[in-house]
Design a protein around this nucleic acid. Structure first.
Lengths: 204, 204
DNA sequence: TATATACGGTACTCTGGAGTTCCGGATCTA
DNA sequence: TAGATCCGGAACTCCAGAGTACCGTATATA
């Protein structure tokens, strides 16, 4: 086999340790959430990940690509759509999603969203990534719950699903980003009971 | 009268043309909405206002103070709280606020909010200014409408006013900042009919 | 073993933007 | 009129941060 073989270059030298990728991306998310996009520096990320700056630039060509990858990786360890809670009532299902780890995870996502909101307009790739990683997963869970409620006859069949799915995320985002108040369990329950369920037309 | 008189220095020289202040602040808001806080440069603002950079630094000590003043000045030409529409129904009052100029104004406020969201955590003064100029005015109008509806017996007396007032702003902000879709008249009417009025407990 | 690449770490270059200074001209007071 | 301060505009200093280069060391292949 020659060195000019196209299919198998068979790299020489020490191999890149890809187990560090998630650690670096996680550090990037921490810094991003704390300081915002422009406040975040590559040195901060490298220091937090206990890595060299060159190591980061070997893996991502620029700060922008690193941030996009970091945002994208928030999607994975998220939700198992095949094993969502199924309590038999819409309220039960919605409340079941309000657990401390879920809240903490959502809070971090909010802060990351705050950090990149002003970039979305001029950065379509980042916008698309944020949509897929931060927006869509939560809406998807809600769609499952509302569809079940429709199938059970718990809520009318003519409700506006896309609108209903957004109420929770919208209220939580507004409280975090604009009002800068904590989204705790009591607040989420209040949103469910006072806004979402009435809007869904649940019998009271 | 000596020059060392404390009360009346009686400034010499050409006087500062304060009619330019609003023009400069308005230019700052345009640039802010278009490029975000960090994307905005003093040169951009000066160029758009057809002013010299020194003129800006004569009036505001730093970029941060300029932005705070610009955000604060969005509060004024806003709403006449003594002459709010009074149609006799909650729905009528809410719909009456959905006019093209009001929508355009709200859209600009949203973009400015997007531009500064990531700064709020580390900039309490800016956060307070944004609260007073962008958040509170709209909530205040809503409170008037909902209180009237309570007084008329149109909605229950035990509704959560503070929660109700946030639904509209939260849904509109989410759609603009996160989903990056336009908040047009149809969408606002849909929010009112499908979410706000059911949550308020209006008889249907 | 010789070579090539990864590693953490440090020092470097380069660019853009905040803030300052100065200019010629205009406008104010004494 | 003389001195002071404004104006728009241009040139300047200064610095932080993106990205690059190189070090000594570690780990891979041939």
């Amino acid at each position: 086999m020659t060195q000019t073989d196209l299919a198998e270059p068979t790299k020489l030298g020490r191999k890149r340790d890809h187990t560090r990728d998630p650690e670096i991306l996680d550090a990037a998310l921490d810094v991003l959430a704390e300081t915002g996009y422009d406040g975040m520096t590559i040195d901060m990320v490298a220091a937090r990940a206990k890595a060299g700056k060159a190591t980061l630039y070997r893996r991502w060509p620029s700060k922008n690509e690193l941030v996009i990858d970091a945002v994208a990786c928030m999607k994975s360890n998220d939700i198992d759509y095949d094993n969502l809670p199924d309590t038999g009532t819409l309220r039960g299902d919605l409340i079941a999603m309000v657990k401390p780890p879920s809240i903490r995870d959502a809070d971090r996502k909010m802060r990351v969203m705050a950090a990149i909101v002003s970039m979305l307009a001029g950065n379509p790739e980042l916008a698309e990534t944020a949509q897929q990683a931060l927006i869509e997963p939560r809406a998807r869970v809600n769609r499952v719950f509302f569809q079940r409620a429709i199938d059970r006859g718990e809520i009318p069949t003519d409700v506006d699903l896309s609108m209903l799915c957004l109420i929770g995320p919208a209220m939580a985002a507004y409280r975090t980003l604009m009002l800068r108040k904590p989204v705790d369990r009591d607040y989420v329950v209040a949103i469910i009971d006072k806004v979402i369920l009435p809007a869904a037309g649940v019998r009271v």
